[in-house]
Design a protein around this nucleic acid. Structure first.
Lengths: 195, 195
DNA sequence: TATCCAATGTTTTCATTAGAAACATTAAAA
DNA sequence: TTTTAATGTTTCTAATGAAAACATTGGATA
């Protein structure tokens, strides 16, 4: 191809572009049933090109989940406010957690869906760990009940994950759960945890 | 086909058999990525036969979810024990709920996934309603805090759904959450709810 | 600098799938 | 008995994931 074509043979940055395209589709379609070929199309590249960067579809999903965990981690650490009382810190983190999930529903579900491979379980746990760390600090500072840290941890993680999933699926209807179900559910959780 | 063949042209009970085959695959594969053709194969019919009973794949998924909600409803009502104190009733129902989910992971996720169509949201809510009814009774009997029923409802539903999903994905590891995370998480929830 | 080679894209091919359409068989109504 | 609607089958199309063979290109190396 000697004629001056603005599409060079080598894309140069395809891997990144593929990931961005996939992230875009996750946002739009709200489902993780996108096709590898559609991603290739969006990237302006042949349908086989992605296989040079990802061994198969699962590999791309895994990468997407990884990106998601990084983004989520950033947003969670950004939500930390050391000066606040520990209870409010916990609530703030929980809200940031849920907000990430509801803002990136398909991505969030992918991250916690195990379609993305084994390793993602560890990442998911690491993310939930932020909450657990706060719980422990709360106990040490005397703000939270001592007895079963592990039980509180499970309760806390299940609550944020459950709220996120229910919110994603539009099941937190105001008629049943009030105008601000997330806020009040977290308040109820706190009553079970705090002194 | 005049020869005596034990496979008659008309299956006679295909719709039911298709559903059972699909339920079987949901149990085995643990994912809802089964194919309509595989189901037809299992039922011993041509790959187009299912379309006589289900307009498309989503229609079958919807039906599966419906069956799931019925099964789950039965198991939940079977778990009701009127003679117990209301707190223990709540815990018993919650455990039955989670048990159904962990025993039928793919089916449970389908039921709450919205892949099965709009109507399933109502069914999901109706299922969660059993918990809410109990909460209301608990308040009337003075066992539960009065203040925000809706908040308690949201907390309760999010907790059972969250525990179910975490358990399904194997994220309730003993090292982090103890030997019986479900039990203790529910105990923590109850502390936030009960007087 | 000229050459080679590994990385990255493309084209071609295959098996599988969802679904539509046309045809076959059968049970039951008229 | 005849007709017809329900239910199955065959055949076809378009799309997909994936593998294989081929093309291009930028950089290491001699």
């Amino acid at each position: 191809m000697t004629e001056s074509n603005n599409q060079p043979y080598h894309h140069g940055d395809l891997r990144r572009v593929l990931i961005e395209a996939a992230l875009g589709m996750l946002q739009e379609d709200k489902g993780l049933q996108f096709t590898l070929r559609e991603i290739a199309r969006r990237a302006g590249v042949s349908h086989a090109a992605p296989y040079r960067h990802f061994s198969d579809k699962v590999a791309l999903l895994t990468e997407l989940a990884e990106v998601g965990f990084e983004k989520m981690g950033e947003q969670l650490t950004a939500a930390i406010q050391e000066n606040l009382p520990i209870e409010e810190q916990l609530i703030a983190i929980a809200k940031a957690y849920i907000k990430f999930g509801t803002s990136n529903p398909a991505l969030y579900q992918l991250m916690f869906s195990a379609d993305a491979g084994e390793k993602e379980d560890e990442r998911a746990m690491a993310t939930l760990n932020i909450l657990i760390t706060l719980l422990k600090r709360g106990q040490e500072e005397g703000a939270f009940k001592i007895r079963p840290l592990q039980g509180h941890a499970a309760a806390c993680c299940a609550m944020v994950h459950g709220l996120t999933m229910l919110a994603i699926h539009g099941l937190l209807e105001p008629e049943k759960f009030g105008e601000n179900p997330i806020e009040s559910a977290l308040a109820t959780l706190l009553e079970g945890i705090a002194n």
